[in-house]
Write a protein that binds this DNA or RNA. Structure first.
Length: 819
DNA sequence: CAGTGAGCGAGCTTCCGCTTGACTT
């Protein structure tokens, strides 16, 4: 019987450590936090010194029960949660939840999962550090106060179900402000002059030291070059070196995977999770740049045997970001000698990236030789003396870490510099042959919109959020409808080019595509209105340094310099007054904008945020006639919709024609434009060039027939025994549908061969639905702001059983299933 | 899923950070 129970946070870690510790130890996982503030209500007794009301989280009841049983049997309990604020708090919550007061309990910490580190930790136990726990409580309670006092103001003043928080609101602000910068951006136009010169039969590129603002100036310069001669005026050769980047943290891994592999931050994290669980990489939620000594030694061995000793240079990196808590190692391969892994291609590619980055971080600098050549133009025109050409060359003398890895950059729209590789050899005074000189019209770029990964980088710089929350935060602001991730098509732009070559001087206009964006973050109308409202009324909390300033206080609490309740008292006084004042005095925020007058009724038309999102409205409730309403389309915004576009929205629904003796109408609903025919709905996709305002009867019939055909093809098999039961082809392959419920087919089954009895069994064996659970189901129910009373009887019947199953985990009834 | 937007108004929504699976049409 194991005498020792060790509790860590992650099950994968538990497994590894158990291997190190031997048979007297059993190692279990808490799966993160086990207790939290009660889900419902504020659950902080403000009047009673901010006493928090904790409960065991619903999804942790089972874990706690299992741990309790093990505690009974153990002589000694080792709390081995992470060594940071949250980890310390988990240990304390475990003490409380498992009632360890009367048990011999020891707290141990380690930063790396190596046998050595574990053994050292076991030899140096301590007690739970309650000052650190208090710092966590302050953090937790402050976040609850901010979130649960501000969000209801938004429900009242903007729209129901919205949310605000220390992290998410500032995240949205970044995106809103970037969008404003872009809208206000003044594009500058200039002419950039480049040349190709030739020396001893070898060509190279150079760029003029100045740009011209007008086409006349550019033309005059190029003209002046017609009779000019060119010679090398200065030549400078300088050694330079490049240093490898530090090994990956969560944030840098997300950035590089985005740049090099095109993964979203969520994708990166889920692939990394798999690699971690398979024991291929170390923990993926970390802000530490540190590598264990064993890892560094393994890297040295790998580098020396693959490339030679001159490529090895062991390094340690120190963290620049202030909020870092460094409870883990940097993200690295567990086994440096394993160059690749099996698994799907995403796992292989991400592992490859991690392996190369880690290895490179322990390799020698790259040594370069940078050459700059200054070229002067000799000729009659004094324009020639006012500028010179520069040619830059870079030669790698020793590749060092570049042999395996080169860090990506975010400047995807920046003008590429004319930086060649090797320049031909030349010396001061050499005459150059001019192959061509080209003046090209260029346009300055607005600041780039954030990609997910660029936003994570910014958040980390500001010290906002933690490695475990970057990906969830980005998905929260999208789920709440504050931000959308979108591709935007570019548009064609003309630019002017003046060329001087061996055929003489010529000019032409060229076309380029510009402004295309892929997977970038845009604020929605609601995001903009909410941000403006919050910045106006909660300036302090929305400021970019709010988190940094409270973090300082948390540190003071952790060092015993400040009582956590005093810190909260200090914060809450002003904050709560602010909340009260805002509730009482602030105006409703709707982003309202008057577009003009309705030519029919003469009443004003306004665009604003309504209960269900952005909309336009003719007239006001005070008028004799009811006002008319119409929702904005997805691609429209309150900020720029025109009167004409608004009037178009009121033209729907519109009669398209008759088919099969019934009317077809076109309209726009919550899920976009659609056709309605015989109480059935058919989506209209604007991407296919269809528009509800202009679609004609023939095309409408075509869409209806296409949908009917697709529905027929979806059907794999029907059963005479039960017309409600169907095997269908869905987005994720074949599935079983019984009434309104869907069931996954067991792996490896061929849908068309299934019998009625087999299908019945699949439906009955399926685990009960965890109704009202987390994740997508919860998101759906919040975005569907629909009164339950209006629902059909079959869904109404379901809701009581839903509630039941949420409270008492067990088997929920399965409607539509007859035995 | 599908034209909602006052009126009378119950009861609901919401935070951040630590962990994994279960699940999706």
């Amino acid at each position: 019987m194991a005498k020792n129970l060790v509790i860590v946070e992650s099950p994968a870690k538990a497994k590894t450590i158990e291997g190190f510790l031997g048979k007297d130890f059993i190692v279990k996982s808490s799966y993160g936090h086990v207790r939290d503030l009660k889900k419902k209500g504020l659950s902080v007794d403000v009047a009673n010194n901010f006493a928090p009301e904790y409960e065991i989280s619903a999804d942790k009841k089972k874990v706690i029960q299992e741990l309790k049983d093990l505690v009974k049997k153990a002589d000694l309990v080792w709390l081995a949660t992470d060594e940071d604020r949250e980890g310390e708090a988990i240990s304390w919550h475990l003490e409380e939840a498992l009632n360890l007061k009367n048990k011999e309990t020891r707290r141990i910490v380690f930063h790396e999962i190596t046998k050595n580190a574990i053994n050292k930790a076991i030899e140096n136990p301590r007690k739970v550090d309650y000052r650190l726990v208090d710092a966590q409580q302050a953090r937790r309670v402050l976040d609850r106060l901010v979130g649960f006092e501000i969000s209801p103001i938004l429900w009242k003043k903007v729209k129901p179900s919205l949310s605000a928080g220390r992290v998410q609101s500032v995240t949205v602000r970044l995106i809103v402000e970037r969008e404003r910068d872009i809208q206000e951006f003044n594009q500058e136009v200039s002419y950039r002059v480049t040349a190709v010169f030739n020396v001893n039969g070898k060509a190279f590129k150079a760029e003029l030291s100045k740009r011209y603002n007008t086409v006349e100036e550019a033309r005059a310069y190029v003209q002046a070059c017609v009779d000019a001669g060119f010679e090398v005026e200065e030549l400078e050769v300088k050694p330079a070196k490049k240093t490898p980047a530090a090994p990956f943290t969560t944030s840098t891994l997300q950035q590089e995977a985005s740049r090099k592999l095109g993964y979203s931050v969520a994708r990166t994290m889920s692939v990394a999770q798999k690699l971690y669980e398979e024991g291929k990489i170390t923990y993926m939620r970390t802000d530490s740049l540190n590598l264990s000594q064993t890892a560094i030694e393994a890297a040295v061995a790998e580098i020396t045997s693959s490339f030679g000793a001159q490529y090895s240079k062991p390094r340690t990196f120190t963290n620049k970001s202030k909020g870092a808590q460094e409870a883990h190692e940097a993200i690295r391969p567990v086994d440096m000698s394993q160059k690749s892994v099996t698994g799907d291609s995403a796992e292989q590619r991400l592992y490859d990236l991690i392996w190369k980055r880690t290895l490179a971080s322990q390799m020698a600098d790259a040594e370069l030789e940078k050459t700059r050549v200054k070229i002067k133009a000799n000729g009659k025109s004094d324009l020639l003396q006012k500028a010179h050409f520069n040619a830059r060359g870079e030669v790698i003398k020793f590749d060092g870490f570049l042999k395996v890895y080169f860090e990506g950059t975010d400047d995807d729209i920046a003008e590429p510099e004319e930086e060649g590789g090797l320049l031909p050899s030349m010396k001061v005074g050499d005459n150059l042959v001019r192959d061509n000189i080209v003046a090209t019209q260029r346009f300055s770029n607005h600041p780039p919109r954030y990609s997910e990964a660029a936003l994570v980088k910014k958040l980390e710089e500001l010290g906002i959020g933690r490695p475990s929350t970057y990906a969830p935060t980005i998905s929260t602001v999208q789920k709440r409808g504050y931000v959308v991730k979108e591709d935007r098509e570019g548009h064609a732009r003309q630019y002017h080019v003046i060329t001087l070559d061996n055929k003489g001087l010529s000019e032409k206009d060229m076309t380029e595509n510009t402004g295309a964006e892929r997977s970038k973050l845009f604020p929605t109308d609601i995001g903009i209105v909410v941000t403006d409202f919050l910045v106006l009324n909660f300036e302090r909390i929305l400021s970019y340094d709010f988190t940094a300033s409270v973090e300082k206080k948390f540190d003071d609490i952790a060092e015993g310099l400040l009582q956590w309740t005093d810190m909260l008292k200090d914060f809450y006084k002003g904050f709560h007054e602010n909340v009260e004042a805002t509730l009482e005095h602030s105006d409703r925020a709707s982003g309202e904008r008057e577009l003009g007058m309705d030519p029919k009724s003469g009443k004003p038309i306004i665009a604003r945020i309504g209960r269900f999102g952005p909309m336009v409205q003719i007239g006001s409730p005070d008028d004799e006639d009811k006002p008319k309403f119409a929702s904005l389309r997805k691609d429209q915004s309150i900020t720029n919709i025109t009167l004409e576009e608004a009037l178009d929205l009121f033209k729907l629904p519109r009669k398209v024609g008759e088919y099969e003796g019934a009317e077809i109408s076109a309209a726009a609903g919550r899920f976009g434009p659609y056709l309605r025919h015989k109480s059935a709905f058919y989506s209209i996709r604007e991407a296919d060039g269809d528009d509800p305002l202009s679609i004609e009867i023939d095309r409408a019939i075509e869409l209806i027939e296409a949908k009917r055909k697709a529905d027929r093809e979806r059907l794999i098999k029907e059963f005479s025994e039960n017309p409600e039961m169907q095997l269908l082809n869905g987005r994720w392959g074949p599935y079983l549908k019984v009434g309104k419920e869907n069931y996954k087919l067991p792996k490896g089954t061929e849908a068309e061969n299934l019998t009625y009895e087999q299908c019945l069994k699949i439906a009955q064996d399926a685990p009960a639905k965890s109704a009202g659970g987390r994740g997508r189901a919860a998101v759906k129910s919040t975005s569907t702001a629909k009164p339950a009373a209006k629902k059909t009887s079959s869904t109404a019947k379901k809701s009581p059983s839903k509630k039941k199953s949420a409270k008492a985990p067990g088997k929920a009834s399965k409607p539509g299933l007859k035995k």
